[in-house]
């Protein structure tokens, strides 16, 4: 057993875990944050994407113990109380989901994309940047629309915070 300390969605957490615990298992099973999903066993689908120290990564391919001291944000950490994050609202508005399984990873990736590439995202950029996120339902069309709209809406959020 080993002890890890992290800040998850703004809260300090401590866990006693086996070293072979994946970050996604720690989040889901120890912290009961089941919004982060596991969709594959090959590190390809992106359903497990969370932010570690501000960067989107696949939590199924990261050891929890290697995140000792890290700041982690999951899909549960995006909304402000009952008010959804602009990217979440954009997915709802533009029907960017059907079954919803891939959605947490899509949204965490989309927010990261905006952080790196800005608020005006072309369709080409969005499709290229979603390379690591697989959706079995939507055909991606509405996901791309949702990300573009969410990116613009996040600009409003940044302004409001100033």
């Amino acid at each position: 057993m080993a002890t890890v300390h992290m800040t998850v969605n703004g809260k300090a957490v401590t866990g006693h875990i086996e070293p072979n615990t994946l970050l996604v298992a720690f989040l889901r099973e120890n912290l009961r944050l089941t919004g982060t999903h596991v969709g594959c066993d090959t590190s390809q689908c992106g359903a497990c994407v969370v932010h570690v120290n501000g960067q989107a990564i696949k939590s199924c391919t990261t050891l929890a113990i290697a995140c000792d001291g890290a700041h982690v944000t999951t899909i549960e950490g995006l909304a402000n109380g009952t008010e959804l994050h602009p990217m979440q609202m954009a997915f709802r508005e533009h029907h960017g989901l059907q079954c919803g399984y891939c959605t947490p990873g899509m949204i965490m990736s989309a927010v990261d994309m905006v952080n790196r590439k800005g608020h005006e995202l072309s369709e080409h950029t969005i499709r290229e940047e979603l390379e690591g996120n697989i959706c079995r339902c939507t055909g991606y069309h509405n996901i791309v629309k949702a990300v573009a709209a969410g990116a613009k809406a996040m600009q409003g959020m940044a302004k409001a915070a100033e």
Binding site: S43, G46, V49, Q55, A56, I57, K58, T61, T62, S109, D112, M113, E129, E131, G132, N133
Partner: peptide
Amino acid sequence: IGDPHVRRR
């Protein structure tokens, strides 16, 4: 290489 998340790690 791979995708944005793979490139991060």
